[in-house]
C-alpha cells in the first residue's frame, strides 16, 4: 500500500498529535522550525547580555543572587532550544555560525541598552511578560521537542516576570529618584516590547503557513492585544503610566486601543541599525573567538581519552579528595 506521507503528516497536525524528529515532515516545516527555534535560542543567549551587565552592580545581595540565577536560566533555555533544533538535523555550531555571521536573527528587543537598575525590572516585567505570551502558546506547538522545551521554559519565565515586576514595585514605592528611574525604564521599554510580537498580521510573511501547521496558534496582533490588556491592569499596581496617550478602553472590541507603533524603528533595528546591534554581536563573537582554544582542548582531550582507554571507563576522570 502506498502511504501518502504528506496526508499522514497533515492528519497528525489535525488530530493534535505531535510531530517527532523521525517523522516525515515537509521540508518547509523543518526549515521553519529550525529558523524559529534557533532564533529563539539565539534570543536567549543574546538576551543574557543586557541583564548580565547589571549582575556586578545589583544593589543588594539578594537582588544579585536572583539576577545571576535568572541570567543563568536564560543560558539554560538556550541550551534546551539548541538541543530541540538539533533534532531537526542542524548542529549547534552551524546555528552559532549563522548567528555570528548575521544570517540568523535574534529578538530585536535585546538591541536596546540597559541603562539603569530599573531596566532589570522593566525587562523582567515587559520583555519576559511579552515573551511568556508567545511561549505559553508555543507549549502547544506541533513540533514535539519544541513544545516540551517550552513547557519547562515557561515555568521559569513566569518567575522571571514576577521578579521583574517586584523590582519595579519596590522602586515605585521608593524615593523620588527611584520612582523617576522606574518610570523612565517603563517609558523606554514599552514600545520595543510591543514590537516583540512582530509585524502586524497583514505584513507578516511567515504567519499563515505557521498557523496552518500549528507551529503558531495565535497571530502577532492577537498576542500583542493580549499583552496590552494585561499591562494596562498591572501598571495601576505600580502607580506609573504607560507612555501612550492613545491607550483607552474600547467597549465595542472589549479591548484597549493603543497608539501607532513606529514600524520604521522596528525595521531599522531588525536590519541591524538599532542602538546596540553591533555591541551585542561583537560580545558574542568575542566570547566565541576567545573560547576557541578551550573548545579545541576539550575535544583533543576527549580524543586522547578515547584512544588510551580500551578498558571500560571509570566513573569520572579523577577522584575528589
Amino acid at each position: 500500500m502506498q502511504v501518502n506521507f504528506e496526508e499522514l503528516f497533515l492528519s497528525k497536525i489535525d488530530k493534535e498529535i505531535k510531530i517527532e524528529p523521525k517523522d516525515w515532515m515537509p521540508e518547509k516545516y523543518r526549515q521553519t522550525n529550525i529558523r524559529q527555534i534557533s532564533q529563539h535560542a539565539h534570543s536567549e543567549i543574546v538576551g543574557m547580555l543586557p541583564e548580565g551587565a547589571w549582575i556586578t552592580r545589583a544593589p543588594s545581595l539578594k537582588r544579585k543572587a536572583i539576577l545571576l540565577a535568572k541570567v543563568q536560566d536564560e543560558g539554560g533555555h538556550g541550551l534546551y532550544l539548541y538541543s530541540a533544533a538539533e533534532t531537526l538535523g542542524i548542529s549547534r555550531d552551524e546555528m552559532t555560525d549563522q548567528l555570528l555571521t548575521g544570517k540568523a536573527k535574534y529578538s530585536s528587543i535585546f538591541n536596546y541598552p540597559s541603562l539603569t537598575w530599573a531596566d532589570m525590572g522593566a525587562i523582567g516585567w515587559l520583555v519576559d511578560g511579552a515573551a511568556i505570551l508567545n511561549q505559553v502558546m508555543l507549549c502547544r506547538t506541533s513540533y514535539g521537542p519544541y513544545a516540551r522545551a517550552m513547557v519547562r521554559i515557561c515555568k521559569e519565565e513566569s518567575f522571571h516576570q514576577r521578579q521583574g515586576f517586584e523590582i519595579l514595585l519596590v522602586l515605585s514605592q521608593g524615593t523620588d529618584e527611584q520612582k523617576a528611574m522606574c518610570q523612565d525604564a517603563i517609558n523606554r521599554w514599552w514600545w520595543p516590547s510591543l514590537m516583540m510580537f512582530g509585524p502586524t498580521d497583514s505584513e507578516s510573511t511567515n504567519s499563515d503557513q505557521s498557523i496552518k501547521w500549528k507551529i503558531k496558534r495565535k497571530s502577532n496582533d492577537e498576542l500583542r492585544q493580549q499583552f496590552v490588556d494585561m499591562a494596562v491592569q498591572q501598571i495601576k499596581v505600580l502607580n506609573m503610566t504607560l507612555p501612550d496617550a492613545d491607550l483607552k478602553w474600547n467597549d465595542e472590541r472589549k479591548h484597549y486601543d493603543f497608539g501607532a507603533i513606529n514600524w520604521d524603528e522596528f525595521w531599522q533595528v531588525v536590519k541591524g541599525n538599532g542602538p546596540c546591534n553591533k555591541e551585542r554581536l561583537d560580545a558574542r563573537k568575542k566570547a566565541w573567538n576567545d573560547g576557541a582554544w578551550v573548545r579545541e582542548a576539550a575535544i583533543a582531550y576527549a580524543e586522547k581519552k578515547k584512544k588510551s582507554l580500551p578498558q571500560p571507563l571509570q566513573g569520572g576522570a579523577l577522584k575528589t579528595a
Binding site: 543567549i45 543574557m48 547580555l49 548580565g52 549582575i55 556586578t56 544579585k64 543572587a65 545571576l68 540565577a69 541570567v71 543563568q72 543560558g75 539554560g76 538556550g78 541550551l79 539548541y82 560580545a283 568575542k286 566570547a287 576567545d290 573560547g291 576557541a292 578551550v294 573548545r295 576539550a298
Partner: peptide, 22 residues
C-alpha cells in the same frame, strides 16, 4: 566568576561557572 556570565567559552561551562558564583 559572575563577570563570565554570558561570556563563557562553552554554554554548558558558562552555566557551570555561574552555578559556582551563585
Amino acid at each position: 566568576n559572575s563577570e563570565w556570565c554570558g561570556h563563557g567559552p562553552i554554554l554548558e561551562q558558562d552555566i557551570a561557572l555561574t552555578n559556582i558564583a551563585l
